[in-house]
């Protein structure tokens, strides 16, 4: 803590109605300072109306080596997509 301030991941909502989106990271002593610094680093041109900061150590990620077993189950379920179904030509909008 003395020498290296913790790393924070920064998420910004650009306007109401949109998700907060990850924009990058920065170092700060605490959450309050992380928000203030994020304002200066990531929103100098009105890019945001709301900021989330999360300690990087609190982000738990899926393991890229297990990408296969994790995501494969969705690959063979084409019936989950609307294009799987035939719609008679007479039906114009569906």
């Amino acid at each position: 803590m003395k020498n290296t301030w913790p790393l924070w991941e920064v998420f910004i909502r650009s306007k109401n109605g949109l998700h907060h989106k990850h924009v990058g990271s920065l170092h700060a002593v605490d959450a309050e300072m992380a928000i203030e610094n994020s304002r200066d680093v990531y929103t100098r041109r009105s890019e945001g109306i709301s900021i989330w900061v999360v300690p990087s150590t609190e982000v738990h990620a899926s393991n890229p080596n297990e990408k296969g077993s994790l995501f494969d189950p969705a690959d063979d379920k084409i019936y989950r997509h609307p294009t799987f179904y035939n719609v008679p030509d007479e039906v114009e909008n569906m």
Binding site: M1, K2, W5, V29, D30, E32, M33
Partner: peptide, 10 residues
């Protein structure tokens, strides 16, 4: 000072 202030705040 920033570290000291953050500690104080916590």
């Amino acid at each position: 000072a920033a570290v000291a202030y953050a500690e104080k705040r916590t």
